[in-house]
Simulated assay, not measured.
Amino acid sequence: MPGPSAICNRSTLLCVKALGSNDRDGRNGSNGVDGWDPAFEIEVPADQRPANELAALKEEALYSWAQLSWIDFGVRLGSLWLLFFVFLGAPIASASFEPSREPLRFALAGGAGSLFAVAIIVLRLYLGWSYVGNRLLSAVVPYEETGWYDGQLWVKPPEVLARDRLLGAYQVKPVMNRLKQTLIGAAALLVTATASLFLLVPQDKDTVAVFTSKSSAGALAADSKVALRKKDLLNLPVDVLDDDELAAAAAAAANGRPVYCTDRYYRALAGASSLFY
């Protein structure tokens, strides 16, 4: 009885043999033993057959990254992250955190944003491979004869179903597992970077002191401005003068002019002519 490794090797050879006999143009071998019977898939357009979709996916410049070794795949993702950091993450992060004064926050913010962009691309790779994998493993697949309006369902013959499931199990599932692990790792790094960034912001006492001093100074300036304006608000009613909020609102509405100039009654009361305002 053959061992598991022999069975796996045999299944892989069957996959390669099936792909080799069924090329992407839909032209099948004429040999009845080694070739692939054209009647199996003749009703489905060549570019919509799951095996051909897998072959096309492997030739895509971006989707082919998922087939590489872990080292090559990591190098490409790292280069992509560096590209996003230089042209996207760093400029946006520098607007909130100055690199020379807050290098840690700048690095966390820019790195998290760039990592999020890379995670979106990895998610797109996962969805593309998942789509082809589902069509390979499914016994019934939809296809379009000429357009979206004449969609049909194709029930795979047993020979085609066995071949497609071998391809899905030995060529697509390992790639999907790798992409899934990459997404989980990216999500963990994003959560860690975001949590670190939020934990660092409120613990900076200097920043809190600066904001507090600025707010206190602003409040004192506002109070002194209201007090100064109260003396200059010539003919406001007493109830308005006694209310700081109303006096401040009246002064703001006057936009630097005496408040009586914004009301016809107070203009007349002050003896000001409406022709000059």
Rank of each mutant, 00 (worst) to 15 (best):
A227R: 15
P38R: 11
V16M: 07
R178V: 03
V141K: 02
R101Q: 07
N9H: 12
L13P: 03
S196P: 00
A6P: 14
A56M: 08
T194C: 13
A119W: 06
Q203A: 12
L233S: 01
S273Y: 09
A61Y: 13
A249H: 10
P4I: 10
N52S: 07
G74A: 08
G26D: 03
A222Y: 02
W36R: 12
W70H: 02
F84S: 09
F85I: 04
L19N: 08
A248N: 12
L83A: 12
E144Y: 06
I92K: 04
W70A: 04
S216R: 08
L108A: 01
V75F: 02
G110R: 08
W129Q: 00
S69I: 06
R163M: 01
D239T: 15
V201T: 14
A221N: 14
N235R: 12
D243I: 03
Q48C: 06
L80V: 00
G35I: 11
Y126I: 00
S138Y: 02
T212N: 11
A90D: 05
W65A: 00
L83N: 11
L88M: 11
W70M: 07
D244T: 04
F84G: 00
F211N: 15
A51G: 05
T146W: 10
A46D: 02
P158Y: 02
W70N: 08
V226W: 07
V160E: 00
A221P: 05
T207V: 13
K205S: 12
A56Q: 11
W70L: 02
A248M: 06
A250V: 01
V122T: 07
I42T: 08
Y170S: 11
A193S: 07
G29A: 14
Q203W: 13
I42E: 09
V238W: 09
E43G: 04
V155F: 12
G111M: 10
A249K: 15
I184E: 09
R49N: 11
V259Y: 06
D25P: 02
L88F: 15
L125R: 05
L166Y: 02
G147Y: 00
M1Y: 14
V155W: 14
V141L: 03
Y143A: 09
D72R: 05
N22T: 01
A119C: 10
